[in-house]
Amino acid sequence: MIRSAAVIGTGLIGTSVGLALSRRGVRVHLLDNDESAVRTAAVLGAGVTTRPAEPVDVAVLAVPPGQIGVVLAEQQARRLARCYTDVGSVKAGPERDVLALAADPTSYLGGHPMAGKERSGPLAATATLFEGRSWVLTPRSDTNSETLNRVLELVTLCGGVPVIMESTAHDRAVALVSHTPHLVSALMAARLRHMPDAAARLAGQGLRDVTRIAGSDPRLWVDILEGNATAVADVLDDLAEDLAVAVGALRELAREAAEERAQGTTTMADLLVRGNQGRSRIPGKHGDAPADCVPVHVLIGDAPGELARLLAVVSELGVNVEDMAIEHSTGRPSGRVELQVSPTAAPVLAERLQERGWTVQPGEESDASAPEGLVNSW
């Protein structure tokens, strides 16, 4: 049973691990070269800033992927822990570094919790960050059983769901579902650097959704992309082919000849249908296919506690929310919360919320032809 742990690196993930473990009664020792970050994490309740007097049960290396091998070797030399894991989003490269540098690779097990935020640093951390989220573990044939059991217990204490993968298979998977989407988001956001003010005022939730993750720490992402460069480049090659097809279809749609426009329409429709099909493969919150849900839109004021008050009412009414999104109104001190619920629960929830004084907007189905930003304007 884990009674003590060390976390090296008190950014978003490391501090969240510390908060989750501390909440379960584990004594956590926080280590970081950034004194401000480690003090902040300690004040938040993620652990203590003293180095343990004796080896802890498990140490979590919450450092960039390129530093995992070196940091592991240093901490093993200092006998920090009985076993070690990491939270790096690349696995094959760090695994090679560990095998080359660490005194005892058998006491190390690679890990990657599939959770995060667009904001970084200890102030963005939460104890519930990993609850219900996949946590990849990449054991090797020489990983000792104590290390495997300890790290599995660590994942459970943090609320994660362990997923066993081989390191190179993990890197190919995250190139598709995480690393390339982040890079594409950054590239789209880069188009906005010199955006005219008039265009900025028209920005809607779709643009925010596409560019949200582009706000992450560039230094960390350079390290991540360097560690998984080939796999990401392979995905981008395929994407570049589709982009070229899309550009060609758009050129055809702009031509005068009806035959060319018809071909462009067919090609563009095929691309969009393929997008629908790919989107449907993303699991819902329970790990299966996305639930058949409908949105209920509720207006809230931009004041502390408003969202919590709304969610408390929804919980009191016994409605299960499958997903939620928050849209901010440009230039206004208000926002709109989209609650995804079952089709049978939606009308009841809307009625009950209105009875309690909330402003519920009508469904957008009848407004499908209106441009984004002009639908149900408020």
Rank of each mutant, 00 (worst) to 15 (best):
residue 143 T to I: 09
residue 153 E to A: 10
residue 147 T to R: 00
residue 146 E to Y: 13
residue 170 H to F: 08
residue 177 V to T: 13
residue 173 A to K: 09
residue 177 V to I: 15
residue 164 I to Q: 13
residue 173 A to E: 07
residue 158 C to F: 00
residue 160 G to I: 02
residue 179 H to L: 01
residue 157 L to P: 04
residue 156 T to C: 10
residue 181 P to S: 03
residue 163 V to K: 08
residue 145 S to Y: 05
residue 149 N to S: 15
residue 164 I to F: 08
residue 148 L to A: 14
residue 142 D to E: 15
residue 164 I to H: 07
residue 159 G to R: 04
residue 163 V to A: 06
residue 178 S to P: 10
residue 144 N to K: 02
residue 162 P to T: 06
residue 144 N to C: 14
residue 163 V to D: 01
residue 181 P to H: 03
residue 144 N to T: 04
residue 155 V to A: 04
residue 160 G to M: 11
residue 153 E to T: 12
residue 147 T to F: 00
residue 167 S to R: 04
residue 155 V to D: 08
residue 144 N to H: 06
residue 172 R to P: 02
residue 171 D to R: 03
residue 164 I to R: 13
residue 164 I to C: 11
residue 156 T to P: 06
residue 159 G to I: 01
residue 155 V to W: 08
residue 180 T to R: 07
residue 147 T to S: 01
residue 180 T to D: 06
residue 169 A to I: 09
residue 153 E to Q: 14
residue 147 T to D: 00
residue 180 T to M: 15
residue 142 D to C: 09
residue 165 M to W: 13
residue 169 A to R: 11
residue 180 T to L: 15
residue 180 T to E: 11
residue 156 T to F: 12
residue 150 R to P: 03
residue 176 L to H: 11
residue 149 N to G: 13
residue 171 D to A: 10
residue 152 L to F: 05
residue 179 H to V: 05
residue 142 D to V: 11
residue 183 L to Q: 09
residue 165 M to G: 09
residue 154 L to T: 13
residue 167 S to T: 03
residue 182 H to I: 03
residue 158 C to R: 01
residue 154 L to F: 14
residue 157 L to Q: 04
residue 174 V to H: 02
residue 147 T to I: 02
residue 152 L to T: 15
residue 164 I to Y: 05
residue 155 V to E: 04
residue 164 I to P: 06
residue 163 V to L: 10
residue 181 P to W: 00
residue 179 H to C: 04
residue 174 V to S: 01
residue 172 R to A: 05
residue 169 A to P: 04
residue 143 T to H: 06
residue 152 L to D: 12
residue 175 A to E: 03
residue 151 V to W: 06
residue 158 C to L: 04
residue 168 T to R: 12
residue 178 S to A: 12
residue 152 L to M: 14
residue 171 D to W: 06
residue 157 L to R: 11
residue 158 C to A: 15
residue 182 H to L: 10
residue 163 V to E: 10
residue 150 R to C: 08
residue 178 S to M: 12
residue 154 L to M: 12
residue 151 V to F: 04
residue 142 D to R: 10
residue 175 A to N: 02
residue 149 N to M: 14
residue 160 G to E: 00
residue 158 C to M: 13
residue 182 H to G: 00
residue 181 P to I: 02
residue 151 V to P: 07
residue 173 A to H: 11
residue 174 V to C: 06
residue 148 L to D: 12
residue 177 V to A: 06
residue 167 S to H: 02
residue 180 T to I: 11
residue 170 H to E: 10
residue 148 L to W: 15
residue 169 A to T: 12
residue 158 C to H: 00
residue 153 E to D: 09
residue 180 T to N: 08
residue 156 T to W: 09
residue 170 H to W: 07
residue 146 E to Q: 15
residue 145 S to E: 15
residue 144 N to G: 07
residue 172 R to H: 12
residue 164 I to A: 07
residue 144 N to F: 02
